[in-house]
Computed example of a mutant assay.
Amino acid sequence: MLKKFITLCILVVIVAGAGVFYALNQVEAYVKQPLNVAEPTLVTIKSGTSFNALLHRFESNGWLESNEFSRLLRRIHPELTQLKAGTFEITPDHTLQQALLNLVNGQQVQFSITFVEGSTFKEWRALLNNAPHLKHVSQEMTEAEIAQALQLDKQKLEGLLLAETYHYTVGMTDLDIMKRASHQLNQVLNRYWDQRQEGLPLKDAYQALTLASIIEKETALATERPIVASVFVNRLKIGMRLQTDPTVIYGMGDKYQGNIRKRDLQTPTPYNTYTMYGLTPTPIAMVGEAAIAAAVNPDQTKYLYFVASGHGGHVFTKNLRDHNRAVQQYLKKLRARN
C-alpha cells in the first residue's frame, strides 16, 4: 500500500513538473515571438498604463499572437513589467521581449533636426514648423516674443542660436529646441571669447558673433574662415568699410531676388556695409562653432581684399591693384564658361 502511495506521489510530481515545464516553454515562446509589424511603428505609452493593458493592445493590433499563458509573464519576467511613459519605436526585427526592454529602459525614439551654418532665423522657423512629432507652440509668436520666452534681452534672434543637429523626442516643443540651441551658443561663444586673440577691434562677444555670421556667409571652406576673418579684422582696424555682399542681401530682406544691382550697393540700410562703417547691428545668420573660432582668432595677414577664385574658394590680396586683377581673372573664367 505504501509503495503504491509513493508511486502515485512520484507520478503527481512528474505530471506537475511536466505542466510547469510546458507552461514555462509557452511563456518563453510568447515573449520571444517576433512582433508582426511591417515597418517601424511608434507606440505611445501614457503614464499609468498597465502591463496587461499593453499586451492586450499589442494583441488587438495584430502585432502579437495571444497565448493563454501570457498571464504568467508578469511572474516569470517581472523585469519586463515596469513600463516607462513615452513614445517608443517597434520594428519588424523586434521580439516582444526586446520591445518591452526598450519600454522598461525608457529608450524613447529620437528624431533629429539639422540647422546648417549660415541659415537665418526665418529659415529655422520654417524647418521647425515642418518638423514631425514636435509641438509647434511658437508659430503665432513674434520674434520678440520668442526672444522673451528664451529669456534673451534682444529683439532679434539672428545669430543667437547655434547651428548644428539637435535630437528630440515626441512631445517636445519647438521652443525646447531653441532653448537648447541658445544655451549651446552661449557656451561656445563665451568659451571662445575668453580665449580671444589680443588686440581685436571688437567691443564684446556679441560683436564677435556678428563678425562670425559675416564670415559664415562669405565662405563654406573651413580652411578659409580664419583668412576671411583676418580681412575683416584688418579693415575694422583701419576704419575701412567691410563691403561684403551678404550684408547687403540681408538688409534687402524680401526685396532680394537673387541678384545684387549697383543701386542695391548704394542704397543705405542698417546692414549695408558698402554705405556704413563697422559691423552690422546684429548678426546676419546663425553660425557654427568654427566661424566663432575664426572670428576671435583670425590668421595674422595683411590681406584687405578677396574675391571668388572660380574654383570654389577665394583669392586674397593686400592692395586694390592686385584685387582688381583677381576680379578680372574671375570675370574671365565666368565668360569662358558661358
Rank of each mutant, 00 (worst) to 15 (best):
L80G: 04
Q33R: 08
H94F: 15
N130A: 15
I45P: 09
N52Q: 13
W63A: 07
Q97V: 09
K32F: 09
G48R: 05
G159D: 07
A131N: 07
S60F: 07
A131P: 08
I113H: 07
H136N: 06
E123K: 13
E158M: 07
H133A: 13
S47L: 15
A99V: 08
V109D: 02
T81A: 11
Q148C: 03
Y30F: 15
L162R: 12
K135P: 06
D153L: 07
H56F: 15
Q107R: 12
A99M: 07
D153W: 01
E143Y: 03
Q155I: 11
K135Q: 10
E117F: 07
K135H: 14
T120A: 10
T49I: 06
L134G: 01
Q33K: 11
L72I: 05
A126P: 08
L161W: 10
R75C: 01
N36V: 10
E65G: 13
N129Y: 14
L54N: 13
G118Y: 03
E117N: 10
L72H: 11
Q139V: 14
A144R: 04
A131L: 08
L73C: 03
T95M: 11
Q148Y: 12
P92H: 07
Q107W: 14
S50F: 15
L127I: 05
G159K: 00
G106M: 13
F58R: 04
H94T: 15
E123S: 06
W63M: 13
T114H: 04
A53K: 15
F58L: 09
S66T: 13
L83P: 04
E123A: 10
V31A: 02
G62V: 00
E145V: 07
A126F: 05
A144K: 04
S119I: 14
S50I: 10
E65I: 06
T120L: 01
K122S: 14
S138C: 11
A163C: 02
N102Q: 02
G159M: 04
G86H: 02
N102K: 02
F88S: 03
Q110T: 11
H56Q: 13
V109I: 12
N36C: 08
P78S: 03
L80R: 10
Q155M: 06
N52W: 12
E65F: 03
E143T: 06
T44F: 08
